[in-house]
Nucleic acid binder design. Structure first.
Lengths: 219, 219
DNA sequence: GACGCTCTTGGACGGTCGTCAAGGAATCCT
DNA sequence: AGGATTCCTTGACGACCGTCCAAGAGCGTC
C-alpha cells in the first residue's frame, strides 16, 4: 500500500516485493504497539479491576495520551477483548511443559501442585483479573465468547494433566473433563481468595488439595 | 393507617411506655423501608451486575426517586453492603433443613444434589450476582469483610452436609472444610457458567458431580 | 526543502455517575 | 386543627466516563 517507486529502501536484499515489506513492516509496527498498549492495559486492569479502570488510566500508565487508544482499538470492548486474548496466551504458555517433564505419579502430583501454587503466588493479580472478567462475562454479552474460549483452554489444560497422571499410574480417567476442571479450579479460586486476604496457609492448602483431588479422578 | 384521634390503633394492650413504642415503630418503619429498598436493589443488581447498576436505576426500579436512597443509606457502599447481608440471609435460610431430612446416605446425596441444581436453576441471577460481588471484593476493600463472612457461612453449610453424610455412612470427614467447600463451589460455579451460557446438561452434570465428589470427602 | 503519510496529542462533547441541599408532601402528636 | 417531624421529590453540582476530532509532530521519500 501507498508504495512509491523506490525499489529497495533497506539494506537487506530481499526477494520479496518492496510493497510487501513496507506493508508488513507497517503492520508489524501497528501490531507491536497494539501489544504494547494491551500489556499496559493488562497491568492496569489487574491492579484496579475491570469496573474501576478507565481508558484514560490505561493510557496514562502506558505513557501515552488517552486519545491514542482509539487509534489502535475500535473501542473499549475491542481493547479488553484483545487484552483477554493476550492474557490467555500468557497463561497457557506458562503452564505448557509442566506435565511432560514428570515421569513418576508422585512427581507429577508435586510438580502440578507446586506449579499451581507458584503461579497463584506470583501472578495473583492476574488471576484475580481473570475471575473478575469471567464474572463480567456473565453480564456483558460481548465478553462471553472470548471468556468461554479461555475457560475451555484451561479445562483442556487440566484434562491433559489428568490424562498424564492416569497414564503414569496405569489407569484411565474416570471423570469428565469439566468435573476435573471444576473441582481443581474451585480449589484454585478459593486459594486465591484466601491468599489475597492474607491467609498464610492458602498456598499449602492448595498444594495439599490438588494432591488429594487429582488421584480421585482416575482409576 | 391515616388514623385520626383514635387512642388505640391495634387490639394489643401494650405494657411498654408509649415513647418506646413510638421509637420502636419508627425504627421498624425505617428498617422496613431499608429492607424494601435493599430488596429492589438486590433485584436490579442481579439483573445488571454490580458494575453496571447505578443508584438512579435502583431507585427507579423500586418506584422511588433517586434521592431517597441517601435518606436511608449513607452512600453506595452502605447500600451494597446491606444488600449483601440480606442476600446472605436469603441464601442460608433457603439451604437450612435440607440435610436434616435425609435418613439414608443416598437420599442425602440425591437431596443435596437436587437442592443445589434447583437453586442454581431458580436463582441463577442471584448466584451470578454473588460471584460478581465476590470478585469485586478482591478489588474493593470495603466489601471484603462482608463477602468473607458470607463465604464462611457457605463453607460451614457445605461442611454440615459433609458431616451429616459421614454420620449416615458411619464414617468421619477426611478433608478440611475449606477443601470440601472449594471443590463443591467449583462444581457449582462451573455449572452456573454453563447453565447461563445455555448448556442443557449443566444441571445434570452438577448433580452427578456432587454425587461423585461428596463420598470422596469421608472415609 | 517541501511533501505525504503515519503516529500522537490534547481539547471538546454529550452523557452518566454519586452526592447533596432545599423545599414540598405526608404523617404524627397534642 | 395546627404545628412538628418524618418522609420523599426535584434539581443542581462537580467529577469522570467513552468517544470523536482538529491539529501538530515525526519522519522517510521525492
Amino acid at each position: 500500500m501507498t508504495s512509491t517507486s523506490t525499489p529497495v529502501p533497506g539494506s537487506v536484499a530481499g526477494s520479496a516485493a518492496p510493497a510487501d515489506r513496507i506493508a508488513r513492516r507497517q503492520v508489524d509496527k501497528f501490531a507491536e504497539r497494539r501489544r504494547q498498549l494491551a500489556d499496559a492495559a493488562l497491568l492496569t486492569l489487574s491492579e484496579r479491576g475491570y469496573a474501576r479502570t478507565s481508558l484514560r488510566e490505561i493510557a496514562k500508565d502506558s505513557g501515552f495520551s488517552h486519545g491514542v487508544l482509539h487509534y489502535y482499538f475500535r473501542d473499549k470492548v475491542d481493547l479488553i477483548t484483545y487484552c483477554v486474548r493476550q492474557y490467555k496466551a500468557h497463561c497457557v504458555e506458562r503452564h505448557d511443559g509442566i506435565v511432560a517433564t514428570a515421569t513418576a505419579p508422585d512427581a507429577l502430583l508435586a510438580g502440578v501442585a507446586d506449579a499451581l501454587a507458584g503461579t497463584l503466588a506470583q501472578d495473583a493479580l492476574m488471576h484475580r483479573l481473570w475471575y473478575d472478567l469471567r464474572s463480567q462475562s456473565l453480564f456483558e454479552e460481548s465478553f462471553r465468547a472470548d471468556v468461554a474460549e479461555i475457560d475451555d483452554s484451561l479445562e483442556r489444560m487440566i484434562w491433559r494433566t489428568v490424562e498424564a497422571y492416569a497414564g503414569l499410574v496405569g489407569a484411565v480417567p474416570t471423570c469428565s473433563p469439566s468435573f476435573a476442571y471444576a473441582t481443581v479450579d474451585g480449589l484454585f479460586a478459593q486459594a486465591l481468595l484466601r491468599h489475597l486476604a492474607g491467609a498464610p496457609d492458602a498456598l499449602d492448602d492448595l498444594r495439599a488439595g490438588v494432591r488429594r483431588q487429582l488421584p480421585t479422578l482416575v482409576g
